[in-house]
Computed example of a mutant assay.
Amino acid sequence: MIEIVPVRGHELVTYADELAALLVDTVDGGSSVGFLAPLDREVAADWWRERAGAVDAGRLQVWIARDAERVAGTIALDRARLPNARHRAEVAKLMVRPSARGRGVGRSLLDAAERSAAGAGVTLLVLDTESGSPAERLYRSAGWTECGSIPDYAGDPAGVLRPTTLYYKAIGTAQALPGR
């Protein structure tokens, strides 16, 4: 049984080694999540630990999917900070351990992030993913709208530049932002 739970800053530090293993496995598996292979596990753990402050400040939310043994997946929601963008957030770092794929873990993580964003008054979510990646099927089936692609946007784990597809999802009724 997989449980999806939000993670606070100090918990992110506690889970950093497990999340690092997930990140390394994801990069080694060829997924483009911002890192090049080979990714050192301690560098990956430090990357997660460095996000604890943003989690505690409310700028970043992180969820993990865990089973009885370990972290099976993760997702993050990065809130926009500029005054004219506080209605939106970016979904980032959706990763699922290969042994947990095909069991609805990615969809459950995505649903958790979407519910939390809607509950916080966010009305627009955005994300990007490597064009042609298996993640695109998940996003489309979850009601996300493709809005274009950018050639040579980011390097895959081998450093080869690949196109990225941008997606958005309206999750609430957009309203004007409060004036000054």
Rank of each mutant, 00 (worst) to 15 (best):
A57G: 02
A85M: 14
V43E: 14
M95N: 08
A16W: 01
A80H: 13
V43A: 14
D78R: 04
E69Q: 10
E42A: 14
L23R: 12
R86N: 06
V91K: 08
R49Y: 05
L23N: 06
M95C: 12
D78K: 03
L39V: 10
K93G: 02
L82K: 15
S31C: 03
G34C: 07
V43M: 05
E11W: 10
L23A: 11
A68N: 00
L12F: 04
A72H: 01
R8S: 15
R97K: 09
A68M: 04
Y15P: 00
A89T: 10
A45E: 08
A20M: 02
K93D: 13
W47S: 04
G9T: 11
V96T: 12
R59A: 06
R70Y: 05
S31A: 13
L77Y: 03
Y15A: 09
R86W: 01
L82E: 14
L60E: 11
A16R: 08
I75C: 13
V13H: 01
R81M: 12
L94P: 06
V33T: 14
A54V: 02
A52I: 10
D25W: 04
S32T: 15
G29K: 04
W47F: 13
R79T: 09
G58T: 11
G30M: 05
V91I: 15
V96Y: 05
K93Q: 14
